[in-house]
Structures are given as structure tokens and as C-alpha cells.
Design a protein around this nucleic acid. Structure first.
Length: 220
DNA sequence: TCGAGTTGTAAGCAGTCATC
DNA sequence: GATGACTGCTTACAACTCGA
């Protein structure tokens, strides 16, 4: 089955099987495919994209999740989504290569489940690795939970609902052919205004939190 | 049979880290 | 400081399973 998968994929993408790179990548800074909705433009505007996971965090999270319960890739994506109350859903493109890496490092062991899915379970080496970084893992999960922290009502859920609504509205109207340039400009202005407003809120929140932290330090 | 859901890989970008 | 390797991330795509 997997050989079939590979066959199809290589046909589909016309890529080179002999690439040495662990993740099957070329030097990606050269040349390339056209990218729609590419995140490169964020950087062009000078914005910094904040990563949820720092160096190696994702691997530890996956190790911890698999240690709790042997799972396949999709289950792990769902588990992380759940841990963050839906605010962060890792892409398959980051989960599967990372699982492969952990398998290569003997931290995880792949188990064929019979239905074509590959389930992963933690190895002894994986348990040792996890134990060594248990504190870091706790911090990462606390951060995930913090991102989704319910305070009375579930804030993350509300934001998530609003995001889904926004996405639905845009998708529903995205391909309309009856919009003039002025219409597009109006919608764009509304989006920019909303983004500015949200950014301002977070800036204010950061300032509040900093001030609170400073007060707490003084009290100590 | 068809479509939705699931699993997995490829291509590509940018940030971070290690090495020289 | 420059450079290359590694890492996290996204989108696109193909193949498979399963239920309607």
C-alpha cells in the first residue's frame, strides 16, 4: 500500500527519490513553485510571526502525547487542537515528518494497524528523552492551555467561532464576479480596520500584563 | 458510485542554531 | 558576521477508507 502511495506521489510531483535530505527537501531557497496565500508577504511587511513551538517543542509534545496514548498522525493533530481549544491545528506537513524523525531517532515505534494507518508508540529511548525534558513539556502544555484558557466562558472558543464566521463570509464571496474594484477596496478596508483594532487590543493587553507583572515583582 | 474524512508526502518559505 | 543545516510552518496534492 505504501509503495503505491509513494508511486503516486512521485508521479504527481515529479520529484527526485534520491534526495539525501531527511525531510525529503531540496535547498528550498532556490527557485520554486508558485505559492498562493504564501506567508512570505507577512515578512515583507516586516511583521514577525510568533511561533507557538520553539526549537524542539513539537517533538516533545508529540512524544508526550504518544506516551499518554499510542496514536496515529491524525489523532495527534486532533489532540493538539483539543489541547489548545482549537486555536492551533498543526498541519499534516509538520506532524508527519516530525513523527518520521522521532521514529528514525528510535524515540517512537511505528505499528501497522491493519487499516493502512500507522500508529506510533513510545520506545524506552523515547521515555528517557521525555523524562529528561518533562519540565519543558509541562511548560509547553501550560502554554497551549493558556492560549485557550477558559475564563468563565471559553474565550478561545468565542474567538474561534468568530474566526470561522469570518472565513465563511470571505469564502462565500471570494469568487464573486460581480464585485467592482471599489467593492473589493471597501471589504479590504474593513478587514484592515479589524486587524488594526485587534492588534491594538493585544498591545493594550500586553501593556496591562507587563504592568501587573511589575507590580507583582515589587510586592515580592 | 460518490463524496467526505483520513493519512501521508512534496514543495516552499522564514526563523533559529551551530560552526567556521 | 557569514553560511549552511535544522526546524516549524503552510498549502497542494494523491491515495485510501468508509458511509450514504
Amino acid at each position: 500500500m505504501f509503495s503505491k502511495l509513494f508511486e503516486g506521489r512521485h508521479r504527481g510531483h515529479g520529484c527526485d527519490e534520491e534526495r539525501g535530505d531527511r525531510h525529503g527537501r531540496h535547498d528550498m531557497r532556490r527557485g520554486g513553485r508558485h505559492h498562493f496565500g504564501d506567508h512570505g508577504d507577512r515578512h515583507e511587511r516586516g511583521e514577525r510571526v510568533q511561533r507557538l513551538f520553539e526549537h524542539g517543542d513539537l517533538r516533545r509534545v508529540l512524544l508526550a502525547l504518544v506516551a499518554k496514548k499510542p496514536s496515529h498522525g491524525y489523532e495527534l493533530i486532533k489532540a493538539i487542537e483539543e489541547a489548545s481549544s482549537g486555536l492551533y491545528v498543526p498541519s499534516p506537513g509538520v506532524i508527519y515528518p516530525t513523527l518520521t524523525l522521532l521514529e528514525e531517532q528510535d524515540f517512537l515505534e511505528a505499528v501497522a494497524t491493519g487499516n493502512g494507518r500507522k500508529s506510533y508508540q513510545i520506545t524506552e529511548a523515547g521515555k528517557v528523552e521525555l523524562a529528561q525534558h518533562q519540565a519543558a513539556v509541562d511548560v509547553i502544555f501550560a502554554r497551549l492551555a493558556g492560549a485557550a484558557r477558559p475564563r468563565g466562558g471559553n474565550l478561545a472558543e468565542e474567538i474561534s467561532d468568530a474566526m470561522h464566521r469570518l472565513r465563511s463570509v470571505l469564502r462565500a464571496n471570494f469568487m464573486r464576479g460581480d464585485l467592482s474594484g471599489e467593492h473589493v477596496a471597501r471589504v479590504n478596508a474593513a478587514l484592515v480596520k479589524a486587524a488594526d483594532s485587534i492588534e491594538a487590543e493585544f498591545t493594550a493587553i500586553d501593556a496591562e500584563l507587563k504592568a501587573k507583572a511589575a507590580r507583582d515583582t515589587d510586592e515580592i
